[in-house]
Amino acid sequence: MRSSLPSVLVAEDNEDIRELVSHQLRRMNVMVLLAEDGRRAVDVAIAEQPALILMDMDMPVMSGFDAVALLRAQGYTGPIFALTAYQDGPEAERAMSSGCNALLGKPINSERLRQHVTQALATAARSNAA
């Protein structure tokens, strides 16, 4: 049986960041799904249809850019936030043109993460209820 909690996929190859973000999300009463490369992120997202994806752009096997583009091509319509050190410039533009909805800057700030995730999950819940 699926959990009634909203789920968030954290796609991040850095174990430290993965653990920190997961911890913060669980404190928000969110079910956390994990992937350590872009290919795995696509597989998990298609299978589990998370309410939100936090996607590192610089990952092995398949980059976050390619994973986001593939997810959009395969019909995933939920919000995807890019985890990136670049808040502007070519990398940021590439993330948005790949299909990300927003940039969540690194280093991860717990308060900013909480605000973005809360808002995205609330919006997703309203869309589902409509």
Binding site: N14, D16, K106, I108
Partner: peptide, 16 residues
Amino acid sequence: HDLKGAGEAFGFPELS
């Protein structure tokens, strides 16, 4: 690369 990305997030900008 990993240390740069994680240090400050854990409260250790020096490690970044």
